[in-house]
Simulated scan of single mutants.
Amino acid sequence: MSDKQPGIAATDGVSALPFRPSDWPMPYLAGIEREHTLTATLVLRRFDIDHKSWRLLAVLKEHGELTVSALAELAVLERSSVSKMVATLEARGLVLRHQQGRDRRQSNVALTEGGDALYQETAPLISRLFEYYFGGFDDEEFQRFMSALRDVMERVRSARLHPWTPRTE
Rank of each mutant, 00 (worst) to 15 (best):
V43P: 04
K61V: 05
E73V: 09
A117V: 12
W164G: 07
V152Y: 12
T41E: 01
I49Q: 01
L129N: 04
A9P: 00
D50S: 08
Q106S: 14
G64S: 08
P18L: 12
D103M: 10
Y119W: 13
A123K: 04
D103W: 01
T122S: 12
D50P: 04
V86L: 08
S127Y: 06
D12H: 14
M146A: 14
A9S: 06
F130Y: 12
T88I: 14
N108G: 11
W24P: 00
A123D: 04
R92I: 15
Y132Q: 05
D3Y: 06
S2K: 14
Q99G: 07
L71N: 11
E131P: 01
L38V: 12
L44C: 09
R92F: 15
V14H: 14
Q99P: 00
W164E: 12
H162N: 07
P6Y: 11
M85D: 05
D116F: 08
E78D: 08
V152Q: 06
E33I: 14
T122G: 12
G7H: 11
L56D: 00
D23R: 00
F134H: 03
I49A: 01
V76D: 01
V43E: 03
L74P: 11
V156E: 08
L149Q: 09
S69H: 08
G7W: 02
R105L: 13
A40M: 03
E154G: 15
R160Q: 15
P21Y: 03
L149E: 02
L42N: 05
T112G: 06
V59N: 00
S69E: 04
S127E: 01
S158Q: 08
E62L: 10
A30K: 14
T112W: 02
V59I: 14
P18E: 04
E73P: 10
A72P: 09
V76C: 08
E121H: 06
S158F: 07
E62P: 00
R92L: 15
F142D: 00
A123L: 11
F19M: 02
S69I: 10
R105M: 04
R92S: 07
L38S: 12
T112I: 11
T39F: 13
G31E: 04
R79C: 09
L89S: 05
D3A: 13
Y28W: 03
R97D: 02
V59Q: 09
L66F: 15
L149M: 13
V76E: 07
K52V: 10
T39W: 08
K52H: 12
T11P: 02
A70H: 05
W54F: 15
E169S: 11
R55L: 14
E73A: 15
S15H: 09
F47Y: 15
T88P: 02
S2N: 10
Y28P: 03
L44W: 12
A91P: 01
E113R: 14
S127C: 06
H51A: 15
A40K: 14
H98C: 03
F142S: 07
S22N: 06
L17Y: 01
R144E: 03
T168A: 13
L56G: 02
G31D: 13
E131Q: 05
M26R: 10
G114I: 00
M26C: 06
A117E: 09
R157P: 00
E90I: 08
P18M: 14
P166H: 05
I49C: 01
P25S: 05
R97I: 13
Q100M: 05
L118H: 05
P124K: 01
A87Q: 13
L56W: 08
A75T: 07
R46D: 10
K4A: 10
T165W: 00
V59A: 10
